[in-house]
Design a protein around this nucleic acid. Structure first.
Lengths: 240, 240
DNA sequence: GCGGAAGTTTGCGCTGGCGCAACACCGGCG
DNA sequence: CGCCGGTGTTGCGCCAGCGCAAACTTCCGC
């Protein structure tokens, strides 16, 4: 039976406020697992058998519309929890989770959740905070999609990805996992083509650099300006 | 000091699994309050001093963009909780809450939350489920905004409102609180004008009936068909 | 090293729905 | 009872961004 070193996960938000001993109790119930790049960790609609903490790699969560289109719900970075359907009262996963690069997770059978929560109530409050901030982020996304142009939404998306999973490189910040134009389109509610056009234009003006499934932000600050700029900005409107 | 009859709130999701006695303990900390139509219950950015359960009336939650535009986050129906910022770790309200009609709430000072949760852990898990389903709904909204036409989004919005706060009337289901075209526009990420055009057209074809701040769904089923229909539908595409 | 698949770029024409503007309507208040 | 402000309707022109189509590039497996 594989063991997990408590010190590796002690400072994750999920485990805030736990001592080494309690942590050991919790980790004893988990088992580590590896997922190869592009493999599915679970599928939308499937029985929510486990919940996870991502230790290494990156995971993409997607939802599929009745019409068959996919949209990207979020990217999971190391240290984050995902697949907590059971905790929020869902018997089935509401989205599909796919490893976008080779990834390592800790998995707890969902059936352990009630027992763990009963024993460690702080798990519930920690999860509440996590879900709460995800709700906030999702609301922000709704607001953006309601009020901003595609170009601004793409800028925001890149900045958010860089903030969450950016790696400092020679001439800027690189998004630290493979991500296609299509993915960005599915995050921002637009099409592959439009994203490609926008990124090309930014690349021409030196704002970013890219490659196949790679994006480097060269001028994050300028991108931020672009993201905040109202389309027809020519002075602060006097809103009532 | 006003008292609250436990039997009035015993079957709210927030209090699922509580006995009359425990309920009394919790309710002792709350005080009821009335808010007149169009008055603010709290404002975005303000200190999250209290959290609430809506007993009567309807409340609209809105967010304001940096540019000054408003979008409607949700409508709160009787029995639902709102303003739970503190529970999800936010010191300030992330949105503005306005009574859209004369409303009665129960208010707990946010400072009581940690104590209540410590004493009654089920409060945390109940809230987790509530927030979880709100996260789901918000994701659904993102998906809709990403993939559907305005007309379909408006149809969905009306159906959701009817489901949540519909009142059976003579010739259909009426949305049971005052709601303007502008509000619907702010829920669906479009403009007042487009909503007006769509509703007019639906009214002409008998799908709905309306009036100032009133909407009656006459043919919910047809509306549902409209909501689900893909724009260029001419046969089920064979999606991989 | 050679194909083929996946990812990306780019041109072009079209249209959904936005922005503007003017008007009609309703209801409440003085 | 007449005015006035909030609400709703409608016409018109325009353009951001989509859909389609075709070519190109990079990576990977054989």
């Amino acid at each position: 039976m594989a063991k997990v070193d408590p010190s590796l996960v002690a400072d994750l938000p999920l485990f805030a406020g736990f001592g080494t001993e309690e942590l050991g109790d919790i980790l004893r119930e988990a088992r580590p697992a590896r997922f190869a790049k592009n493999s599915a960790i679970f599928d939308e609609g499937q029985d929510a058998h486990s919940f996870f903490v991502l230790l290494h790699g990156h995971v993409r969560a997607t939802k599929t519309t009745p019409g068959g289109e996919q949209i990207v719900v979020r990217y999971v970075a190391p240290g984050e929890t995902f697949g907590v359907a059971m905790a929020i009262g869902l018997p089935r996963y509401p989205a599909t989770a796919t490893a976008v690069e080779d990834s390592v997770v800790l998995a707890w059978p969902s059936s352990t959740w009630p027992r763990l929560v009963a024993k460690f109530p702080a798990l519930a409050t920690n999860t509440l905070q996590t879900i709460g901030s995800r709700l906030q982020e999702t609301h922000t996304r709704v607001v953006e999609m309601s009020t901003q142009q595609v170009e601004q939404r793409v800028a925001h998306a890149l900045l958010r990805l860089a903030g969450q999973s950016g790696r400092q490189v020679e001439h800027g910040v690189e998004i630290d996992f493979p991500i296609s134009r299509q993915d960005i389109a599915q995050m921002t509610g637009t099409t592959l083509h439009t994203v490609s056009r926008i990124l090309s234009s930014w690349e021409r003006s030196g704002l970013i650099a890219g490659g196949r499934q790679r994006i480097v932000l060269r001028e994050p600050h300028k991108l931020l300006v672009l993201a905040e700029a109202a389309s027809g900005e020519d002075g602060p409107p006097d809103r009532a």
